[in-house]
């Protein structure tokens, strides 16, 4: 079995200072392997998003050991965090597209980060990626001219165009109707499988749970696990009892 792309070992996290200091994550331990589709569910305030931002190198780890691509993120410098982020694709609840840019330019922003990619190549890859998410005819439209589902598909194209090893998705279906939400998740899953990348998705949308290889449930900052019924569930869990 290959090494995990995300290795989390007894990670705890606190918000606030002094008397207001409050623990939101309690000794979380979980490994996620290449190519897995993992859904992280749980009620609001259970710490799902916090965990996601830690994995995404948006915050520095306070306690415990967190490795992404075998790089320890604890005590990592801002520069190292920025480097890690470039190999992670993000899909947010709100699509967060740049309004001043067309769909194609939004996607290309993800490639412009990589200095080694020629702008002409970046242009072509962005157009191709939009075609893959079914928006070939919409490349030159601005976000406000697109529907909610279309915008989220542009966001997926932006997250996947640079072939990241990990895609982190935070409630990508929250603002979409049932059919669009379903389409978006299936699209993510199909493209991720094609590229062999790992997906970690936070959602409490029960309608999409079946795309996961594995379900992780979180409550009050602690993990409780359930194997996913539909898929080829692999109980490769390494949580410690808490």
């Amino acid at each position: 079995m290959s090494a995990p792309v995300i290795a989390i070992d007894r990670v705890s996290h606190w918000f606030g200072r002094g008397r207001l200091r409050k623990q939101v994550l309690f000794e979380i331990s979980v490994d996620i392997y290449p190519g897995e589709v993992v859904i992280l569910s749980g009620p609001s305030g259970s710490g799902k998003t916090t965990l996601l931002t830690l994995i995404g190198a948006l915050r520095s780890t306070q306690s415990g050991r967190l490795c992404v691509f075998d790089r320890p993120l604890k005590e990592a410098s801002t520069h190292q965090l920025e480097q890690v982020r470039r190999y992670i694709g993000y899909i947010f609840q709100a699509h967060n597209l740049l309004h001043a840019l067309t769909a194609r330019q939004n996607v290309q922003m993800a490639l412009d980060l990589h200095a080694d990619i020629d702008p002409n190549v970046a242009y072509q890859r962005s157009v191709d990626m939009l075609a893959e998410v079914g928006l070939a005819d919409w490349a030159d439209y601005y976000p406000q001219e697109l529907s909610g589902g279309q915008k989220q598909r542009v966001a997926i194209a932006r997250a996947l165009v640079s072939h990241p090893k990990i895609v982190l998705a935070d409630e990508p279906t929250a603002s979409l109707d049932k059919q669009s939400g379903r389409d978006v998740v299936e699209l993510m899953q199909r493209l991720a499988k094609q590229q062999g990348c790992t997906i970690l998705m936070v959602t409490h949308d029960n309608r999409v749970l079946d795309v996961a290889d594995r379900l992780i449930h979180m409550e009050d900052g602690r993990l409780s696990t359930q194997a996913q019924g539909g898929g080829n569930a692999r109980p490769m869990l390494s949580e410690k009892p808490y």
Binding site: G56, E82, R85, R86, A94, N96, L98, A110
Partner: peptide
């Protein structure tokens, strides 16, 4: 006005 967009760019790895 662009704060969320800028935050997104940072999350993508822009400095």
């Amino acid at each position: 006005d662009h704060l969320a967009e800028y935050a997104t760019l940072k999350a993508m790895g822009y400095k």
